[in-house]
């Protein structure tokens, strides 16, 4: 028999999991890049890796307090954005795509190589950087919550911090996108020469957008490693594509899209993996092994996303009217 309660409760947990919050933040950053400014950043995984490693290395190797470690991560991503942006933002959009995807891979390989094992932990990564963050936890020890949402004090602390950050940054994004700054940014997405002819420093605006979205990705990387350890294999190109999938699912030029998109993505992923694993166990899928079942969830999620993109290409929160004019 299939334990439906366990499948649904596991799926429900993903609604507020820190990983979902991290992906929502990363997708919000991409919404600024891709949805609003039209910058094709395929290196969001690189920004997330800088957040994760910047935070963990500052604490482990240099003994920094939490706030300083966060600032180091943000500083690293600003430098990264400048390095990517200075040569490519004057060129056409596709050049940025190529450069970002390559730069993110370079970062991951640097973190993986044995040469810097003493600092990066190479392929096995880093752990033991959580004490500082746990010490800030004001929640007394114990277990709280109801139903599937029952966690200990540390797990609640990560969730509260993660989702507060998502809320604050979503509101900030909403504010800036309805301001004159957002108007310039959206104008650049439509035609940067026209915006230049109106006296706006397009290069500077694109750089600001790249930095801002990158900082969101960096903060996402920090939230991402709080419930787990820092492992370089997590920052492959596929991470960027999952974030893109979330963004397109929710709607590229929307605020709620990346947040709700991340929730839907992770709930679906958890539901499919729980269902398939238990279905194989129960002998419903005799042609399949447990290992194959583990991969099937990505196929099913892929199909689900394809269906959404075909039948609702503007995403869940996108404006249907925009589609009438897509070139």
């Amino acid at each position: 028999m299939i334990d439906w309660i366990a499948i649904f409760s596991n799926a429900a947990q993903e609604l507020i999991s820190p990983t979902t919050a991290a992906y929502a933040l990363a997708a919000l950053g991409l919404a600024i890049h891709f949805g609003y400014t039209g910058l094709l950043n395929f290196g969001q995984a690189g920004f997330m890796a800088l957040g994760a490693y910047g935070y963990a290395i500052s604490i482990l190797s240099f003994g920094f307090p939490v706030w300083a470690a966060v600032l180091v991560g943000i500083g690293a991503s600003i430098v990264f954005a400048l390095i990517l942006g200075i040569p490519t933002l004057r060129l056409r959009a596709d050049y940025l795509a190529i450069v970002t995807i390559a730069a993110a891979e370079i970062l991951r390989l640097i973190f993986t190589t044995n040469t810097f094992d003493a600092i990066t932990g190479s392929a096995s990564g880093l752990q033991g950087y959580k004490t500082g963050f746990a010490a800030l936890n004001p929640i007394p020890d114990g277990t709280y919550g109801f139903g599937p949402f029952t966690y200990n004090a540390y797990d609640w602390w990560i969730r509260i911090v993660g989702w507060s950050l998502v809320t604050v940054l979503a509101v900030v994004t909403w504010l800036i996108m309805r301001s004159p700054w957002g108007r310039v940014i959206k104008g650049i997405r439509e035609d940067e020469d026209a915006v230049r002819a109106l006296g706006k420093n397009v290069y500077s605006y694109k750089m600001q957008s790249l930095i801002l979205g990158g900082v969101y990705g960096t903060l996402a990387g920090m939230i991402f490693v709080l419930p787990r350890s820092v492992v370089p294999a997590n920052y492959q190109t596929s991470l960027t594509f999952f974030v893109y999938a979330i963004l397109l699912l929710g709607g590229a030029a929307t605020i709620l899209g990346p947040v709700i998109g991340s929730m839907i993505f992770w709930v679906l992923l958890s539901f499919f993996s729980g269902f398939v694993a238990r279905a194989v166990e129960a002998g419903w899928l005799p042609f399949m092994s447990q290992v194959q079942a583990g991969q099937l969830r990505f196929i099913l999620v892929g199909v689900a996303i394809m269906l959404i993109v075909i039948f609702r290409p503007q995403g869940i929160f996108g404006n249907k009217k925009e589609l009438a004019f897509v070139k």
């Binding site: 700054w181 957002g182 108007r183 439509e190 706006k200 004019f325």
Partner: peptide, 30 residues
């Protein structure tokens, strides 16, 4: 070069010079 997915009014307002709200830090404070 009309900015297609901006409203006609937004197209117009983009043309004005010296807008305070076009600074990223000031834009969050309406």
């Amino acid at each position: 070069k009309a900015l297609g997915l901006l409203s006609v009014l937004d197209n117009m307002m983009l043309g004005a010079k010296g807008q305070t709200g076009e600074n990223l830090f000031r834009s969050v404070l309406p």
